[in-house]
């Protein structure tokens, strides 16, 4: 059952991910990306990472994709015209991809340690949010505050970039 659900979510994620690359209209690409992220969030749930799954839906499928759609509609992008294929670039891209997938296969086939099922918890699993929060506010407190500064800088940077005239 668990393997069946894994394949359903993985197929959803990969098929819509391929849709992002293959569809010509940017709005369809964005919609496919939302579905792909929902599949990915479901995979996070199968890994007992509920907090990360929810964050993935809220931040990616919610905020980030709204921003993408907003910009696509603001710029009024039309479906891409079919241009003549750049054959060397395309061949290069496909060669890089084939090499990457080949290396991935070799690495995964080389080590039998990857083929064990999920280890069962030895301690009762209560709250995932509590554990991530505890790690975030104790061990990773400094990076957490630096992230806050990063978000502030990004906000100011976006406001400056979006002004009509840069002085």
């Amino acid at each position: 059952m668990s393997l069946f659900l894994f394949w359903v979510f993985a197929a959803m994620m990969l098929a819509f991910g391929a849709g992002v690359v293959l569809l010509r209209n940017p709005v369809s690409s964005a919609m496919c990306l939302v579905m792909s992220f929902l599949g990915l969030a479901s995979l996070f749930f199968t890994l007992d990472a509920y907090f990360i799954g929810i964050i993935q839906i809220l931040v990616y499928a919610g905020a980030v994709m709204v921003l993408f759609l907003f910009i696509i509609m603001l710029l009024d992008l039309k479906a891409e015209r079919a241009r003549k294929f750049n054959i060397p670039a395309m061949a290069g891209g496909i060669a890089v991809l084939a090499g990457f997938v080949g290396i991935l296969y070799k690495v995964l086939a080389s080590n039998a340690e990857y083929l064990h099922a999920k280890p069962a918890f030895t301690v009762p699993f209560t709250s995932d949010v509590k554990a991530v929060g505890a790690a975030l506010f104790t061990q990773f407190n400094l990076p957490f505050q630096i992230i806050g500064v990063l978000l502030l800088v990004a906000t100011i940077g976006v406001v400056v970039l979006s002004k009509k005239e840069l002085k």
């Binding site: 994620m13 990969l14 992002v20 890089v96 991935l104």
Partner: peptide, 23 residues
């Protein structure tokens, strides 16, 4: 049950799709 290899393979394929899109 799905194993670690399943997740890594799917994650690698998703990365390959993204890389293909960028290229």
């Amino acid at each position: 049950e799905p194993t670690l290899a399943h997740y890594l393979a799917v994650s690698g394929l998703l990365f390959a799709i993204g890389l293909g899109g960028v290229l």
